[in-house]
Design a protein around this nucleic acid. Structure first.
Lengths: 342, 342
DNA sequence: TTGTACGCGTTATCAT
DNA sequence: ATGATAACGCGTACAA
């Protein structure tokens, strides 16, 4: 049998309410009795039952992270920070994977009811939801590192991210300035209405602004295996197809580092060199891009800062200090060895 | 206000106990009333309150994963499987990071009490605990992919892993058979009494069996930044030091793929080539090793199978079907482009 | 300052 | 087959 609040009360010769007051830092309690109680709590290794607390409070102190694409290594560092920060704030951290085809709002609603969540963080996914759908969520939530498309430009939607369009523009513009005209891209499938779309838009605009008309033949994507977007496998397959098509190009912009690495491998396997034959650029700034040979030119997202800010905003939301916040971080163009001037 | 079991009872004109029976698949209940209730449950989107359930049952259906070294990409795929399997079995998944310096058993005991866990999975860490310490844990637990050192050869300790010693031996033996005599290794710091030690032992034995006496000067490790073992950074720093020391070697065995990739980058940065100047081998079989240029020769751990088996055993433990199980998987020597015959 | 008593939502026991 | 009710551990309004 586990120690309960009653045991502590009995041992100390006080009422349960007094023990409750002690462990919850209530003001009106005698310092001496409180000290006695706390000592007893320590001695007996007493820990309040979380379920009972949650039941009584009719809300838990659990924060759930709903993640689409858990395999993405870009997320693992983010999760690390989330977990750390949430733990620091004495809250519980619940990780829940959302299937690619599932509706994250539906899943969130389920969890909210079932677990009496205090807050939700959405990670990954497309997040195209109507205001009506979003309003069903009664608890604070925030969208982390998910590009928000124009369709849900609602003011109360909180999110933290880089400007996917702008950063994408930045790196493609860099490729253009290096003298590249035939720049291919490995993009997300057309059904992607979110990050993939924004990064593709940045690519197109950068080309236009540099006097190059986007060529549909240079925009690559796979239609199969769409649950593995942002993977090396995806990049490998797309690049291989591109190379075999014989299409002429001198540079390649992949919408993620993992895709870039997969594409690079395909290029090597075809007997070509980087950056001699093709320049390759990615997006995200994961460690593997830095240690790749050659290191991959990319846009580094300040994920630690972004994750910390996400938590910060979420707690402000939960504390009722704010009703919504949107924070955009600046990405950093990291020039690696995978790109060269023509 | 959320819908409760009372609401459903009132709406259906039955008692709460009947509703409870319906939603918990109890046998003695009329099919018609059950159908009516289940329909109402659906209509009102009713979900039982988890806290109340856990309180009543005095145990939750939560399985916690305690992980040391959450940044390790090798773990992210494992977590994915864990999360998936646990979700399939209608249980909750709680991820808890353990600091490098923390005692995982202490943390587990805390969580067990606080969350009334049903089971625990330990991932990473060294896991050198006495029987006495382990016996404090009253709930089923299992050690996943953690090499178990000789010190806790207790029969009831469940674990799933590859034989770190044997697999390590296997790949170093392969290097020897390629004709390498001067084989360096990037190992864990000496305080590591677990996986790092076992893999080092395999390295030494393989050398001896091939007529090569292990040379202390070829065993590299860092003493700073020990919370970043198994990282590319760790490998880069160690390899750099080795190269700058001028020590002669022709092959390098890193005890993880990430370390190998970091080391490879250091070799490239020093102007040398792989495998022309140095052969490089890793351990784990992560995707990044496969897509690296050159692809890294490694030991692939069948992590999906291992993770699935971990869950399987854990559920058997929880169901009382078994009292302990140890399963060792076979690793696969994956020959990449990073090694060559002398 | 401290104690008493109720209720949070659920499951299980005992009647009926 | 169904209903009434106690109990799970805790927090709190109210009383003392």
């Amino acid at each position: 049998m586990e120690t309960t609040i009653k045991d502590i009360a009995r041992i100390c010769g006080v009422a349960v309410s007094t023990v409750s007051r002690a462990i919850n830092n209530h003001p009106d309690i005698n310092e001496e009795t409180k000290a006695l109680i706390m000592q007893t709590v320590k001695d007996y290794h007493y820990l309040p039952n979380n379920s009972a607390r949650n039941l009584k409070r009719s809300e838990s102190n659990t924060i759930a992270v709903l993640i689409k694409g858990i395999g993405n290594p870009f997320f693992s560092n983010i999760l690390k920070v989330f977990e750390q920060e949430i733990q620091n704030k004495k809250h519980s951290f619940l990780l829940h994977r959302v299937e690619e085809h599932e509706d994250e709002i539906e899943v969130a609603l389920m969890l909210e009811k079932e677990k009496r969540l205090k807050g939700i963080i959405f990670l990954g996914g497309y997040f195209l939801h109507t205001r009506e759908s979003l309003d069903k969520l009664k608890i604070p939530y925030i969208l982390s590192t998910g590009g928000v498309s124009d369709t849900n430009e609602t003011e109360t939607l909180s999110c933290v991210s880089v400007d996917d369009y702008l950063e994408s523009y930045k790196i493609v513009d860099y490729l253009c300035k290096l003298g590249h005209k035939r720049i291919a891209t490995i993009a997300a499938p057309p059904m992607d209405e979110n990050i993939g779309k924004l990064r593709l838009k940045g690519y197109k605009c950068a080309l236009k602004d540099n006097g190059v008309e986007p060529d549909q033949g240079l925009i690559c994507y796979n239609v199969e295996d769409t649950d593995q977007i942002f993977s090396m496998e995806y990049g490998y397959a797309a690049a291989k197809k591109l190379l075999e098509s014989g299409t002429d190009f001198t540079a390649l912009f992949a919408i993620s580092d993992s895709i870039a690495i997969g594409a690079a491998k395909a290029i090597f396997d075809s007997g070509k060199k980087i950056p001699d034959d093709y320049s390759v650029a990615g997006f995200d700034g994961i460690d593997y891009a830095k240690y790749y040979q050659p290191s991959i030119t990319t846009i580094r997202q300040p994920i630690e800062d972004m994750a910390a800010e996400t938590i910060h905003i979420l707690f402000d939301l939960m504390d009722g200090k704010i009703t919504g916040a949107r924070k955009t971080f600046q990405g950093e163009l990291v020039i690696g060895q995978s790109t060269r001037a023509l």
